[in-house]
Design a protein around this nucleic acid. Structure first.
Lengths: 122, 122
DNA sequence: CAATTGTTATATTATTCGTATAACAATTAG
DNA sequence: CTAATTGTTATACGAATAATATAACAATTG
C-alpha cells in the first residue's frame, strides 16, 4: 500500500491519510476511476480503526475527491470547480505566505518551492 | 486593534490570532521591535481568556517571531533561518500542492495565487 | 508602594480524535 | 439462494486538546 502513518505525529491520522491520498492521486499512483480499498481492509492494513479510515473517506467525498458506489466502493472521481478550488487554495495559502514573508522568503523562493514540488509529483 | 476573531470558525482561536499576527507583521502593520499588547489587554480587547492569547504568544515565541522582554513585553523579533523556513514551508505546501494538482490547478495558477497574495500584502 | 508585566499552576467544561461493538440495507461471490 | 462483504450509521468510552476561570509568583513600572 501507499500509506505510511506516523503515530507519533501531532497530525490527526485521518488527516495524514487524506493527505497521502491527495499525493497518490496527484502522482497518478491512483487514477480517476480507481477504487480505493474498503474502509475495513485499509484500516486493517495500516493498523487503525475502521472509523478513522471512514472519516478520511467521508471528508474526501465531501470535498469532491471520491464518489461512493455501492458496488465499486470508494471510487476516485474528482469534481473540478476551478473557481472554488482557487478560492479555497487562496485561503489556505494566505497565512502560509504571511508566515513566509515574516521569515524573509521572497516570492521567487516561493515559486521555486512550487516548481520543486510540482516536479517532485509529476 | 488589528484582530478579528470568528468564534464560529472551526479554527482554534489561538491559531486565528497567530495567523493574524503573521499577517500584521507581513503587511508591516506591526514592525520589528514593536511591542504587542499585554496578554491581559489583548484578551480583554478581543473578548477571550488570557491563556488563549498567552498560547498564541508562546507558539510565536517558539517559532521565532517574538522575543519576550520583562520590561517591554512581547516584542516582534523575527529569527531568520532561511534553510529551516524553506524546509518548513515545503512541508506545509506539499499536501496543498497535491490537493491543487488533483483539482487541476496548474503550476502557473499556483504562482498567480502567490503573486496575488504577495501584492495584497506588500 | 501599588499596579502591571509574563509566567506558571490547578481545575473545569466542551470538543475532537481514535477506538470498540454493533447493527443496517445493498451488493457481491459461491 | 446463501453467506460474505460493502458503506453507513449509532452508541459508548478513554485520551487529548481547546478554552475558560482563579490564583499566585517574581520582576518591572509608574
Amino acid at each position: 500500500m501507499f500509506v505510511e502513518i506516523d503515530f507519533n505525529s501531532d497530525e490527526a491520522i485521518y488527516i495524514q491519510l487524506r493527505n497521502q491520498i491527495f499525493l497518490a492521486i496527484a502522482t497518478s499512483q491512483i487514477k480517476e476511476g480507481d477504487s480505493l480499498p474498503s474502509v475495513r481492509a485499509l484500516a486493517d492494513d495500516i493498523g487503525v480503526n475502521m472509523h478513522t479510515v471512514n472519516k478520511a473517506y467521508t471528508t474526501l467525498r465531501q470535498d469532491g475527491f471520491l464518489k461512493v458506489d455501492r458496488r465499486r466502493g470508494a471510487v476516485v472521481s474528482v469534481d473540478v470547480d476551478k473557481m472554488q478550488s482557487m478560492d479555497k487554495m487562496r485561503a489556505y495559502l494566505k497565512p502560509l505566505i504571511a508566515r513566509g514573508i515574516c521569515k524573509g522568503l521572497s516570492r521567487e523562493e516561493f515559486k521555486q518551492l512550487i516548481d520543486d514540488l510540482y516536479d517532485e509529483m509529476k
